[in-house]
Amino acid sequence: MGNYLVLQTDFGLGDGAVSAMYGVAHMVSDDVVIENLTHDIPPYDIWVASYRLYQTVQYWPKGTVFVSVVDPGVGSQRQSIVCKTKSGHYIITPDNGSLTHIMHYQGLEEVRVIDEVTSRLPHSEESHTFHGRDIYAYNGARLASAEVSFEELGSVIETTSIEQLSMVDATIDNGILTGSIDVLDVRFGSLWTNIPLNSLQEVAIVHGDSLQVTIYHHGHKVYQNIMKFAKSFADVQVGEPLVYVNSLVNIGVAVNQDSFSDLYHIGTGIDWTIEVRKAPKIIFE
């Protein structure tokens, strides 16, 4: 196991919360290498926290410890857990659905419950609203520095017993690909779907094809257009929409040098679904 500790929160960097987590980790061990996944998860958005772990964990060395703190239930009866993924990584997080995407797409090898009374920053017993510092960063640093083993952090629970958010799998039906808009490429406003590239390949869609893209919110059509399946953004004009393959080898929808989500008021989550099919050929006489 390496010494990497990677932090994700919805705290932002406007105050000292993240710095306090760094400080606690360094008090545990000077050898811990602390990095940030992001601290800009939308407040309380467990779905996005879950997706960002799925987006990132697999690209770090085995043994890396992740701490994810998006915790609207802090101080309640929700459990604190640590898991070992099938890829050999560790994640410490509230048991509130933050492991949904990792469990669904990559798999969990084992999950343990952390004792929030005994396994916490010394002298923090009276604080009940900053578990990110007192429990997650503290135990994350202990695990990353090998002060404790994964097995010593808590007792085993059934993997299937942890909280999971609802998900919608991508489907193919009569040449129509259907999936959900899972998250945004935040800075650029592109839509990231859960439709994998191999689904397009199954229906013989190749780069350069014209595709009909339809977006629904709660089953109501909110957008439809024909756009190119492009290999890169440079394949279309500035301001033109396109379908492309994102960094997770899933299908994305974007506008070249503009924000698709802002232009068309498109959101994310299982209430937002998308259909992709080959566009009918138009013959001009």
Score class of each variant (00 low, 15 high):
N36L: 00
S80H: 08
H39V: 12
V48G: 06
V70N: 13
A17Q: 06
W60I: 11
I135A: 09
V33F: 12
H26Y: 14
I41K: 02
L108Y: 02
V117H: 14
G97V: 04
Q79P: 00
D40T: 14
R52G: 07
T118E: 14
N36S: 08
L121D: 03
W60T: 15
Q106V: 13
G97Y: 01
Y136S: 13
H101F: 15
D134R: 02
D40E: 13
V113N: 06
S87C: 05
R112Y: 09
S29H: 13
W47K: 10
T118P: 00
C83I: 03
S87E: 13
Y44I: 04
S50I: 00
I114P: 10
S29Q: 13
W47A: 15
Q106R: 11
D31Q: 12
S68H: 13
H89Y: 01
S127G: 06
Q77N: 10
Q79A: 09
V32Y: 02
Y136R: 09
H104V: 07
N36F: 05
T93A: 11
P72Q: 10
H39Y: 07
P61K: 04
D115M: 07
E125T: 14
E109C: 14
D115V: 05
V57Q: 03
Y105R: 09
S124P: 15
A49G: 15
A17F: 11
L13Y: 03
A17Y: 10
S87R: 05
E125D: 14
M21H: 04
L121T: 14
Y136N: 11
Y22E: 06
Y59F: 15
D134I: 07
C83M: 01
Y105S: 12
Y138S: 10
Y51E: 00
G132A: 06
F130L: 07
H26T: 05
N36K: 00
I91H: 10
Y105M: 08
S19T: 15
I91L: 08
L13M: 01
G16H: 03
H104N: 12
G132R: 04
V70R: 11
P43G: 09
L108C: 08
S124Y: 15
Y22Q: 05
T64N: 02
G97D: 06
H39F: 07
S124V: 15
K62A: 15
R112M: 08
R120K: 09
Q79S: 09
S19L: 07
L108S: 11
L37A: 14
I114K: 06
S124T: 15
M103P: 00
Q77H: 08
V111I: 10
H104E: 15
L99Y: 01
